[in-house]
Write a protein that binds this DNA or RNA. Structure first.
Lengths: 255, 255
DNA sequence: CGGTCGGTTGATTGCCCTCAACCTCAGTGG
DNA sequence: CCACTGAGGTTGAGGGCAATCAACCGACCG
């Protein structure tokens, strides 16, 4: 596995301009010259494998991170030692914002499988912002999408029916795969049932039963972590609430 | 209301340097000269009263906002028309980040009472960042604290016991008042029971019963929106779940 | 006074957590 | 080849806790 060809590919991969994610990572409007400047600052870390951590609770903030391969979970741990999943991070999605406020991380970032990660050292961040015109707007946008994912999560957790949360979760995940350019109707779940449960504020049995029920209803096909969405329309309806409402009656919505 | 006195007061109010919140708004390390520059850019909006909105879902992003008086809630509305409270915003706490990702707001920002709001127009934001050295770091920190509040919210909603959520909510609110320099053991809740319920993913009756139970246990005294925390230690224990853990150390805020 | 709004309290239902058994699958070693 | 093992996941039975439905209370207002 160490032929020249592989090395060349590895080298190509190192370049932001060649990265399949650079449209997502820093969407729209970065020129090639600027990408070269970025290359000088973005660091590539050694690969991580499953259960290795990018940072831990209490670590000082060193950088912002984006996986270009593989997925992560961020985990908060309360004083009981109980874990709560704060977020899942697919390739191209930002990690590390949790330390922006205090300078120290509030979460652990743990790899769900083999990963490759890029980082922007925090001390470079400010100078990058000033060096590359327009970059600050891009960075704000990436931050904004991270905030938006947190808000999606809040909306899931605000639902009081377990089945709704599960439907929203699968729908949202599918959407994120679609944006990534991956198949969105059939994919492999990067995380365990346990992780899903702790993400949704449920117990593992409830998640399992929810999946089974969606399968019995013909909405999905699930076997282990392999998932196929058979009826995306129906899933969306369950996730977003009813556009045309087989749901509970509603008095003619005023306003 | 156009006497000289009023105008003078209004003028005083306009200055960031005089604002009681400027340490919170843009913590630590902005010089007086820079504050003058900020003044030129920060706009003060006309006051809003209860139930008036700063922005609505779908509105294009115009600015970032901070109330210097009064509180807000941000509300997401799903297709059933059901409302979910995404956040409460006390004076000095940022609003408007929800539009950073897409350029359009995902939430409504609604005043909970009479308010005064400052805004940084988005088109100025970038130039401000470049004009004032060090400001980008400050802005990132303010954003980070907003992210941290969202994560606190996620941790509340991840708890499966209603009583735990309620305890965390009151404890967190008290902490925020403390940081603001307000009494943290006795204050008036800015929001209704309904809002609290929709913030915590519960129904109003459950919130009401939770308050009553905390009162019966001697932890709080509550009458309408007036709240007194009688046993802060106990409340903290219920909120953080820990037996006797004396809370995380406060890291001396670096730079 | 009646009406509405925000909040509390009571009685009942039902969803989801708990506890427990069982299954599948991969790895391991005999 | 099989038995053993442990982790991850599914399924079942039962009970507790929060949602639901409903009545009531106090405050405010016209």
């Amino acid at each position: 596995m160490n032929t020249n060809v592989v090395l060349d590919l590895a080298k190509l991969r190192r370049r932001c301009a060649q990265c399949s994610l650079h449209q997502l990572c820093l969407p729209a409007g970065i020129g090639h010259d600027d990408l070269d400047q970025l290359d000088a600052i973005v660091r590539r870390r050694r690969p991580l494998t499953r259960s290795e951590r990018l940072y831990r609770i209490g670590d000082p903030m060193n950088a912002l991170y984006v996986a270009r391969e593989g997925s992560f979970k961020t985990v908060a741990i309360n004083s009981d030692g109980e874990e709560q999943i704060i977020g899942f991070h697919l390739p191209g999605e930002l990690m590390g914002l949790d330390a922006l406020g205090s300078g120290r991380h509030r979460c652990e970032a743990e790899a769900l499988g083999p990963t490759q990660v890029c980082e922007v050292p925090i001390e470079s961040l400010e100078e990058v912002i000033h060096a590359i015109p327009g970059l600050s707007a891009q960075i704000l946008r990436v931050i904004g999408r991270s905030v938006a994912r947190d808000q999606d999560h809040l909306e899931m957790l605000g639902r009081r029916q377990a089945q709704e949360r599960i439907a929203m979760f699968l729908h949202g995940l599918s959407e994120r795969f679609r944006v990534l350019g991956h198949p969105s109707a059939e994919f492999s779940l990067p995380m365990s049932r346990e992780d899903i449960a702790r993400f949704l504020g449920l117990v593992i049995e409830t998640v399992s039963r929810g999946f089974t029920r969606l399968q019995d209803e013909g909405v999905i096909k699930v076997r282990g972590r392999q998932l196929r969405i058979l009826d995306p329309r129906q899933l969306e309806t369950m996730a977003l609430g009813s556009p045309d409402a087989p749901r509970e009656q509603v008095c003619p919505r005023s306003a």
